[in-house]
Amino acid sequence: MNNSIKMIIVLTSIALVSGVVLSGVSNWAAPHIESNRIAETEAAIYLVHNNARSYKKIETEFGKVYKVYDEEGIPIGYSIVSEGNGFQGKIRLMIGVDTALTKITAIEILEQVETPGLGSRITEDEFKNQFRNLSAQPSVNWVKGKTPEKPNEIEAITGATISSKSVCAIINDVLQKARIEKQSNKL
């Protein structure tokens, strides 16, 4: 009996001390972690819109959309966060589009777990730059093994067709949803 009381006391006090210490550390770290996260998001928002100076966050059914404005406060487009399945796991993208949702300004890969050296090449500039000023009308298409001819085409990475395809699919999917929202004047 005596022993079980001792067990309870010891475990409780260890847990108590641990709780106090952790809440202290958490209080100190929380603002840092939050500011890191915001800085990261902001950097990504501006990365896909070079001329943007400020942004407004819009919560939509399909995720977060950031409406971005230039120096004079005129809306110049949207930065949309979207994710979908790649070859091995989730790919999270920041997609920059113009206000009409017809032209992509740029894209940025936020997270991916594709095969190193193959699918992970979607993070390389050579691939991402193909999306600069790419037409998304009616949708983004990909070609394999040849130079793209149409304004809405990109060339898939050799050996990583599925990852390249996934990026296009994520973009097309989210743009379609965004267009519906746009029609109902929610954006």
Partner: peptide
């Protein structure tokens, strides 16, 4: 419990 406490501290510090 003790180990988890220190791990959480390390995790928070690294994240911050």
């Amino acid at each position: 419990v003790i180990i988890a406490t220190f791990v959480t501290i390390a995790d928070f510090v690294m994240k911050a």
